[in-house]
């Protein structure tokens, strides 16, 4: 039996809304340590990795490791029926072919349950090696979303260049060229405006903006996002989900032929 009760139920809605356009169907893996998902987009250019630790749930029970294949579009439709402040409980029998979502209003005066059919999804699991990144930039998630959106109106690729002076996002296209530089400001009076750059050595990488834009759908999940880069390696775009875990995206670079 798998049963997990999440008091901040809208977190699940935000997670699914963040990934459903990148990945259509995926396996959610449940074990005693938590609730995870790893999936690549169809072109195998980007990967999403969700990890919600069991201790972040009000109640978490997983008698036997299980993998639940779901259509993320259908899951999003079900989660749309949850109230923003509802408590969400997921339940699935060990050898069942459905998963039930129960939504309870805070005053417990409204309880609903939705049953979703599970799917058989054969997804390959990738090993993500620990990487010694040359640069890790942490900036407000809304700032990152705005940079991706603004540059998308200029071109379809972005060069992200991290130096000790700051991190520069450059794009060019038929319209023209754009450079957005964000400088470190760990002294910003408001924590949510702080930008920090952990630089071991300067690094510059080129990426397709449409994926970076898609990752920014995770903005509601966290105040900040971290971009970790190393030469000729995929970038890791990391949203920390407070007290629960993380939603991470990886994107392969575009490299001179």
């Amino acid at each position: 039996m798998f049963e997990a009760r999440l008091v901040q139920g809208n977190l699940l809605k935000k997670v699914v809304d963040a990934v459903k356009d990148l990945v259509t169907d995926a396996n959610f893996d449940c074990s005693s340590s938590g609730f995870t998902l790893q999936a690549m987009d169809n072109s195998h250019v980007s990967l999403v990795s969700l990890s919600l630790r069991s201790d972040g749930f009000e109640h978490f029970r997983c008698d036997r490791n299980m993998s639940m294949g779901m259509s993320l579009g259908n899951l999003a439709k079900i989660l749309k029926c949850a109230g923003n402040d509802d408590i969400v409980t997921m339940k699935a029998a060990d050898d069942g072919d459905t998963v039930t979502f129960m939504f309870e209003s805070p005053k417990e005066d409204r309880v609903s349950d939705f049953e979703l059919k599970l799917m058989d999804i054969d997804s390959e699991h990738l090993g993500i090696p620990d990487t010694d990144y040359a640069a890790t930039v942490t900036l407000p998630a809304a700032e990152y979303q705005r940079i991706c959106r603004d540059l998308s109106s200029i071109g379809d690729t972005v060069v992200i260049s991290a130096t000790k002076d700051g991190v520069k996002f450059s794009s060019s296209g038929d319209v023209g060229t754009a450079n957005i530089t964000v400088r470190q400001n760990t002294t910003a009076d408001k924590k949510e405006e702080q930008v920090s750059i952990d630089l071991k050595e300067p690094v510059a990488l080129t990426f397709a903006l449409r994926y970076l834009n898609s990752f920014a759908k995770a903005t509601p999940l966290a105040s900040h996002v971290s971009l970790s880069m190393a030469r000729d390696l995929p970038v890791m775009v990391d949203y920390q989900i407070s007290d629960m875990g993380h939603l991470r995206f990886y994107l392969a670079p575009k490299i001179e032929d």
Binding site: L47, L126, G127, L233, P234, A252, K254, I255, E256, D257
Partner: peptide, 14 residues
Amino acid sequence: ADKQRNLKDYFNTV
């Protein structure tokens, strides 16, 4: 032009 790489050039299937 820069060629879009594939994640499987970097991460192995486990």
